[in-house]
Design a protein around this nucleic acid. Structure first.
Lengths: 230, 230
DNA sequence: GTCTATAGCATGATAGAC
DNA sequence: GTCTATCATGCTATAGAC
């Protein structure tokens, strides 16, 4: 029985505080605020305001003054949380990759190899992006314009996500559940389909397609290919 | 016999001058240069330099000084071709949409309904993006951050491209060449697969996957779905 | 038609009061 | 810990020489 999005969300049980206290721990060296409760609250405002603005006008077009107006901070206050504007990118990137990778691996490892595992991975990825679409879209849009070392890290993280799909495909082929195809290429195509869900969110909303329907269609498409005639 | 990319490129026979004189005609009201030969040459330099820079560092991160250095113009000289920086976006957008729509329709209309027509459309779209990947990726990245009226135009153009695939799917279903599926949703998924080719170009190059191989895989994936069991 | 010089402004970042 | 005031810089866009 396929798990649907509402059950997924309830099962994740990641509160806002959990998320931002993890984010604080990863970046505490840059942050001058000492009281954790204050820092967590401030981080949450700043990150969420950044994602909103970057989503609507783009990260580079967003000024720190825009960010202040949106987050409620003053121009000086922001600099207690970040070293500079570029630092905002890392703040947001690091955290999301960690969460995505971990959840994807955890949620697929118990499923049986083959169709079941592939479905679990597709659903989990789509559900994650449904939970934080602004982060996924930010990460996709900004990664290509990072300075080379940071960019390399982002490429590596994206590759790891793709590898999860690759491994599932290979395992399924080895187990005889799938026919033999180019697993690397099909993993790329699968990821492309995952991306469209968060990159074209408003289009799908306008067409009244929800995440469960989308997940089902992607699974059907992949499965008919993997189980077709050799 | 599937047409491959080299034959497609030769068959298009669109010279650089053809392209930029069409672009000049569409935007002659903004452009202060009187001699067509000069204007065409200037436009070509500016558009190509913009696409290069926007592709590497992003349009908003690119300053007009960067553009001058890259295009060989002076800061004042640029303003004989454009009204302001935002005008550069329209200059580039208009032209590409026109070319893409026209080529896609022309190249698919003679093919037989069903698999053959679908393949022609997939190949044509991929080949077009292979010819001007910087334009496709620019258009994808910038469209979401345009001011509302211009954004609407871009959304509309993207929708028309998707409709071409939609029509082909519906026609094929009506003719009995395909089984009955949600054609609107499958057209969206198809477009998502088209997009990945130009958005993740360097990844595919690293994997030594060329455009013909990619086109073949996308067609196989779609066809197995459209011809699978009802 | 293209250049140089510069106006006018918005931005990222800092210093220091509270 | 957060604010206001301010600096230096780099930007878009224009004016006017050639």
């Amino acid at each position: 029985m396929p798990e649907d999005f509402e059950r997924f969300k309830a099962g994740l049980s990641l509160s806002r505080d959990d998320i931002y206290s993890a984010l604080l721990q990863e970046n505490h060296h840059h942050i001058r605020i000492k009281k954790p409760a204050v820092a967590i609250q401030g981080l949450a405002s700043i990150v969420e305001a950044t994602l909103r603005l970057a989503g609507s006008k783009g990260f580079h077009a967003m000024s720190l003054r825009d960010l202040c107006a949106e987050s409620g901070f003053s121009i000086g206050g922001i600099y207690a949380y970040i070293k500079n504007k570029e630092d905002l990118i890392h703040l947001i990137q690091d955290y999301g990759f960690l969460l995505t990778r971990r959840t994807l691996r955890t949620r697929t490892q118990d499923a049986a190899p083959g169709v079941e595992k592939l479905r679990a991975a597709v659903r989990t990825h789509l559900f994650l992006s449904e939970m934080m679409p602004d982060w996924f879209s930010f990460s996709f849009m900004e990664a290509r314009h990072l300075p080379p070392p940071e960019r390399q890290k982002a490429v590596q993280a994206a590759r790891e996500i793709e590898d999860i799909f690759f491994d599932i495909l290979q395992e399924g082929m080895a187990a005889g559940a799938f026919r033999h195809v180019d697993a690397r290429l099909l993993a790329s195509l699968t990821k492309a389909l995952m991306q469209d869900w968060y990159l074209k969110r408003s289009k799908y909303r306008r067409q009244e397609i929800d995440v469960n329907t989308y997940a089902q269609s992607v699974c059907d498409l992949l499965e008919s290919y993997l189980q077709g005639p050799p």
